[in-house]
Amino acid sequence: MGCYYSKRARQESGYEDPTTLASETSFTVNEVEALFELFKKLSSSIIDDGLIHKEEFQLALFRNSNKKNLFADRVFDLFDVKRNGVIEFGEFVRSLSVFHPNTPEIDKISFAFRLYDLRQTGFIEREELKEMVLALLNESDLVLSDDVVETIVDKTFVDADSKGDGKIDPEEWKEFVARNPSLIKIMTLPYLKDITLAFPSFVLNSEVED
């Protein structure tokens, strides 16, 4: 039942034991197996080496492997836990787990904080927020005057930086999200609950057969 192929593919992609991954994440063993199908597809779209390269990530997100995007870069960097320039299967599953509907909100809030803390200083700084607003405007072909951008950033800091020290710390971020829960809506992918339906071919490769 395709065992030779599936074992080979698993070795190449740093395949980790689904039981271990399931025990560490919000996924069931079956869901981890299904994610492997998705991972195989993404990791072979340009370079068939069982690792997700940034170009493959961009291709999946934008249908364009050359599209530069600050936010996609940040997501990629957070998924690439080992910081070796590629996403391995274990990293993929553990990071995607943050987006599972059953994952505690506090994990989602913390992941979003790290995403927006561009320079990893432990704070979201004013300059970082402005840089992200400008990146979003650029991505959306929206043009706003510098005054308007400054006003948006200022207003957000008045709301979020409750200590008034010019930077948002994790505690302020948590309180800000509690008052604005829509900010972490993007941190939940309802689709992840149906992953076994979306990628049913895992059944054919299941280790139960081995």
Binding site: L42, L61, F62, F71, A72, V133, L136, T156, A198
Partner: peptide
């Protein structure tokens, strides 16, 4: 009265943050 957008609300609309595209077949 003008509504001033929350900067985080604005950036959360980025396509780069919309991971549902990873699941497109």
């Amino acid at each position: 009265r003008p509504v001033i957008m929350n900067a985080f609300e604005l950036i959360s609309t980025s396509q780069g943050l919309n991971l549902s595209n990873l699941f497109e077949k």
